[in-house]
Design a protein around this nucleic acid. Structure first.
Lengths: 197, 197
DNA sequence: AGCAAAATTGAACGACTGCTCAAGTACGGG
DNA sequence: CCCGTACTTGAGCAGTCGTTCAATTTTGCT
C-alpha cells in the first residue's frame, strides 16, 4: 500500500446518521450527504459502495448507540425497572433538543422502506428484533432477581416496552407535548411493571 | 360553462390514497399517480394544484375513513370498551390483507414530512389531534354512562389509546406477528380500561 | 348544427437524482 | 528523493423528478 490518509469512519458515520435520521433515506440526497460528511462521490462509493450501503452502516451505528445508551441507564440505576424508566426518559425527554428527530431511526426506516429496498427493510427488522430481545434480557434478569413477579412474561413485557417506546416517540413528534409524554411514561411504569407490589 | 365530463373525485382520491399509503409521499412519483388514477398531468394539476395538494386531500380522505370505521365499531357494540377493542382488532388484525400498509398513513406521513413541507406536516398533526379528540369523546361518554370509573381521565386514556394504536401498527409492520399483536391488544384492554371489574 | 368554453392530452422543461471514471493528488517504501 | 500505488477529486452521464402549456377533444347552450 502507499496511501492511508483516510477519513475517520466513525466521525463520518456519526454525521451521516444525523442526516439520515433527520431527513429519512429517500429524502436524503447523495449531494446532501457529500456536504454533511465532507467527502466527494468517488470516495463515498469507494468506502460504502452505494447510498444503500452507507445507510446500512448507519442503521447499525444507530442501533449500537441505542444499545449502549440502554446499558448506560441500566448501569446507572440499581433496579431494572428504574434503569428502563431512565432509558425511556432519556430518549423521550432529554436528548430531544439536539437529536435529529423525535422518532426512532429504525421505526422511521421501517415506515419508509419498501420492497424496492428489501435488504434494508430486512436489516431494519432484524435490528428492531435485537432491540426487543435486549429488553427481554433485562426483564428476564429482573424476574430472576426477584424484582418482578415470576408470573410476568419477559417476552410479553419486552414487546410492550417496544410498542410503547415507538408509540411515545411518534406521539412526541405529533404533539411536542413533553409534559403529556412524561405523564404517560409514569403511568406506563406504574401499570405495566407493578414491581415489588 | 360548457364542459363537465369530469372524473369521479371520490374514486380518484381512493386510488391515490392507496398508492400514497403504500409508498409514502416522497417515494410516490407523479407518474406513479398518473397511472394509478388514470389521469394526465394537466388534469391532475387543474384539479389538485400540485402533488402536495393532492396529498393534502388524501390525508383528509384517510382520516375521514378512519373516523367512519371507528364510528361503525362503536355502533356495532353495546359497551364503549367493546367498540374500541373491535376498532383496534379491525385495524390491526382484519383489514391487513388488502390494506396498502400496516401503518397509519398519518403516522407514516408524520415520520417522513419535514420543514420543507410544513403545511402538510401541520395538516398531519391536526388530523392526528382530531383522532385523539375522537377517542377522548368516546371515553368521556363511557365515563358518563358509568362504564368507566369517574376517576379515569378521558384525556389521558385517549392519549394512551393513540400511543398504543400507532405503536402496535409499527410492531405489526416490524414483525408481522398477528398472534403477538392480538395478545397485546387483549392485555391493553384488560389493563388500561379495567371496566366494570 | 355550430360555437364558445371547459377539460384533457402528452411532449417537453429545467432541476435534480444516484452514480461513474479519467485525471489529479498525496503518501509509504526503497 | 522519487516512484508506484492507494486514495481523492469533480465534471458529467443517463435517468427521473414535479410541473407547464400549446394543441386537441369534449361538452352544454343556443
Amino acid at each position: 500500500m502507499a496511501n492511508t490518509a483516510k477519513f475517520d469512519r466513525r466521525e463520518v458515520l456519526e454525521k451521516a446518521t444525523r442526516l439520515f435520521w433527520q431527513k429519512g433515506f429517500h429524502a436524503t440526497s447523495t449531494r446532501d450527504l457529500q456536504q454533511a460528511i465532507d467527502m466527494r462521490p468517488g470516495s463515498i462509493y469507494a468506502a460504502f459502495g452505494s447510498k444503500s450501503g452507507l445507510f446500512r452502516e448507519v442503521l447499525h451505528f444507530y442501533a449500537d448507540d441505542m444499545a449502549r445508551r440502554l446499558q448506560g441507564c441500566m448501569d446507572g440505576e440499581d433496579a431494572t425497572i428504574d434503569g428502563l424508566r431512565a432509558f425511556f426518559r432519556q430518549i423521550l425527554l432529554q436528548g430531544g433538543d439536539n437529536a435529529p428527530s423525535e422518532l426512532c431511526l429504525l421505526a422511521k426506516s421501517l415506515s419508509e422502506l419498501e420492497k424496492d429496498e428489501a435488504e434494508l427493510l430486512q436489516e431494519t427488522r432484524t435490528l428492531l428484533a435485537a432491540t426487543e430481545e435486549n429488553f427481554r434480557r433485562h426483564v428476564e434478569r429482573a424476574v430472576a432477581a426477584g424484582e418482578l413477579s415470576e408470573q410476568a412474561s419477559p417476552a410479553l413485557l419486552a414487546r410492550q416496552l417496544q410498542v410503547e417506546l415507538i408509540g411515545l416517540r411518534s406521539y412526541l413528534r405529533a404533539t411536542g407535548d413533553r409534559e403529556a409524554v412524561g405523564e404517560l411514561v409514569d403511568n406506563l411504569f406504574c401499570g405495566l411493571l407493578p414491581a415489588g407490589r
